[in-house]
């Protein structure tokens, strides 16, 4: 969406005031610092969103969970201890489980013991959306495999269809399992499936995905594959990348630099 004239004038006015007065504030908008980052910015738009995960860089700090914590607290993901009922958007999986096709006896030692960051692959040909009877999940024109929790009836066909285990079902009311609820994002209710949405809500407000922002080693790179000048394209041209279970034909859009 292009900047409208009205918005542009407003922005220009506010910037000019801020430069001139230092403490100038826009009418209606509070001047406090924490209030300004609540201001909705111009949306970040793309044609084919993708993520590149640099496993070498991610490996450097063992036990780091910054991205997981950032994502789960941003999106009110409940922390349920029971493995059968746990809900997760982004988590770590052993290399052999994340890449069963790449597994062999003489695999590099550090890879064998490595835990790989996994989340929804936002496949180009997503099997989950094809089985959804209510179109509660669908692929957007910018490639994001989106969820409409209002429409989900909890049939769990998508959970069965996803070959990556990226979808979680809320077997119980998630609210009691959320430490601190983020008021800017809804929780889910019992009987609804959830997963990573590439932070569509943050992109719409002009911010990068929470996990990307949280990673201090810059292991996660998010960008538009159809933009030849993007960082993701540059990385994919320069280094060898693998995708999870490519033989299934789902065309995952999360690339791992090994």
């Amino acid at each position: 969406m292009a900047v409208k004239r009205r918005e542009f004038c407003k922005l220009a006015g506010v910037s000019a005031l801020a430069l001139a007065g230092g403490s100038a504030s826009a009418p209606g908008a509070a001047a406090e610092a924490n209030e300004t980052d609540k201001l909705i910015g111009e949306p970040i738009v793309g044609n084919r969103w993708a993520m590149v995960v640099d496993l070498q860089a991610c490996r450097k700090e063992e036990g780091c969970r910054d991205c997981i914590v950032a994502c789960h607290s941003t999106h009110n993901v409940p922390a349920i201890d029971e493995p059968k009922e746990e809900v997760k958007w982004i988590w770590k999986e052993h290399f052999a489980e994340a890449f069963p096709n790449q597994q062999h006896e003489y695999l590099a030692h550090d890879l064998q013991h490595e835990e790989v960051l996994v989340f929804c692959n936002h496949c180009d040909s997503p099997p989950c959306t094809r089985v959804c009877p209510t179109q509660a999940t669908w692929k957007r024109d910018d490639g994001i495999v989106m969820m409409d929790w209002h429409r989900c009836i909890g049939c769990r066909y998508c959970v069965a269809a996803c070959p990556y285990g990226s979808r979680s079902f809320n077997w119980r009311d998630p609210r009691p399992y959320i430490d601190e609820i983020n008021a800017d994002f809804p929780t889910r209710s019992r009987g609804v499936v959830e997963k990573c949405t590439f932070c569509d809500e943050r992109l719409a407000q002009g911010r990068m995905p929470a996990c990307v922002e949280a990673c201090k080693d810059k292991c996660l790179v998010f960008g538009d594959l159809e933009d030849p000048g993007s960082e993701v394209r540059r990385l994919l041209e320069k280094r060898h990348a693998v995708r999870r279970k490519p033989g299934l034909g789902t065309q995952p859009e999360v690339y791992y630099l090994v």
Partner: peptide, 18 residues
Amino acid sequence: DGRQFPMSLAGTMHTHDG
């Protein structure tokens, strides 16, 4: 009347108008 608001029920993000 030309004011702009986020289509949000309970969020805390805002535009210049509200």
